[in-house]
Design a protein around this nucleic acid. Sequence first.
RNA 1: GCCGGCGUAGCUCAGCUUGGUUAGAGCAGCGGUCUUUUAAACCGAGGGUCGCAGGUUCGAAUCCUGUCGCCGGCACCA
Length: 464
Amino acid sequence: MSGEDEPEVIRDRRKKLERLRAAGIDPYSRGFKPTHSTAEARALVGDSERTEPVSLAGRLMVKRLLGGSAFADLQDQAGRIQLMASRDILGESTFDLFAELDPGDLIGVTGPIFRTRRGEVTLEIGSFQLLTKSLRPLPEKWHGLKDVEIRYRQRYVDLIANPQVRDVFRSRTKIIGSLRSLLDGRGFLEVETPVLQEVPGGGHARPFVTHHEALDRDLYLRIALELHLKRLLVGGFERVYEIGRVFRNEGLSPRHNPEFTMLETYEAYADYTEVMRLVEDMVVASTAAAGRTSMITYQGEEVDLTPPFRRERMADLVVEHTGRQAVGKELNDLFEEFVEPKLRQPTFVTDYPIEISPLARRRDDDPRFVERFELIILGREYANAFTELTDPIDQRQRFEAQAAQRAAGDVEAHPMDEDFLRAVEYGLPPCGGLGVGIDRLIMLLTDQPSIRDVILFPVMKAES
RNA sequence: GCCGGCGUAGCUCAGCUUGGUUAGAGCAGCGGUCUUUUAAACCGAGGGUCGCAGGUUCGAAUCCUGUCGCCGGCACCA
């Protein structure tokens, strides 16, 4: 877009840009080095004294012109601080230059910090430099940017206009960091496994297909991390994990983005009961990392995240809520429809039907079920784990059963993976595996209603 | 994919039910007044393909149909 098509406000700024260039001012200059952040500068000033001059850089947010003086807010990564410009200090022409700056411009300023009569911490501008001229007007200063379509499509504007959005993403990083730190401290090795795969396994989902030109072969984007991580246990690593993006070719919703972040861990010589304790520890660590206590509120509903979490067999829960005895897929269907939405407080649901769990170990006492659990909070799934199936003969039969469903038209049934079977035939140690949907955990801990609020650039349809 | 809601100035919103001069306000921008303001204030002049395309009508932001996008629900997603 350019020229005649542009809104007047943008045309005006282009003209202003040309005037600056004509006056010998570089509107995209460099070389300015801030000495402090706004927060650091704020901390320098005491009750009434003036500080030595400091240099700050950031985005000009609001201007208030009062004749021979001018006030403005400067926003940087750390926050905001008020600026004051005075004609007496800057001189006529420099003051006018400052007065002509637009909200949105990136500038560097140098001067002492003091408090105004009303106590506002303020930098008195001794000199300033235009660093980057902004050509587009910012959202309104009072109401901010509310249009969710613009917020998601133009996240950069959202981050400028809604500083609390930055806090969500800072929390996201802290939460992931806390999980990494917990696992590292327990001797887990963080690894990276292929995103492009020949066989998209480890989950039940429709994959994205892509094509490698040089190999002239279709490849799939991974839907899970599981099968490669278990190969690494075969190889001798005893505790591994990966935090990575997985891709599922499914519909979108406030809880589903086509690409999302999964944490998977595998621990040799552990079973699913030990994984439950690991999950509890992860919840505690990540809650603290998010700066919250164990009693949290999500969208107005209170949740107590204090371990130990309730543990219930799926079949018992279904009897409790429906009065019905069931097994297999029917049991799972009843659970999902009548029980899961009612599980509000953290609950480990255990012992899933074998038909829907092709990678999990059978229960020794009842081969219709596997040693598996999911962590349900507020009716949503946050973790999925099992004692892994290590018997290669059984594993092949499970894959064959899935292949039969696939042949019957279920595009999401687990595909046969001969290389994985070969690995298991070499010997997979007894182990417990875990998958955690990181985005949903972050939604919970930052009280965000949509997965799009915790993913910086969520998938959107083409802008028209 | 299905159902419902929404789409008006750069941003936040009125106006639509019940069709009727030239589509409004605040903020932002522009021109003024103003040297401690902070949603600064005051005066003035601008800024619009009412998502898009058809239709009904003397006349459409308003009613109808289609379409695009966003939001929510369902389906899908163990």
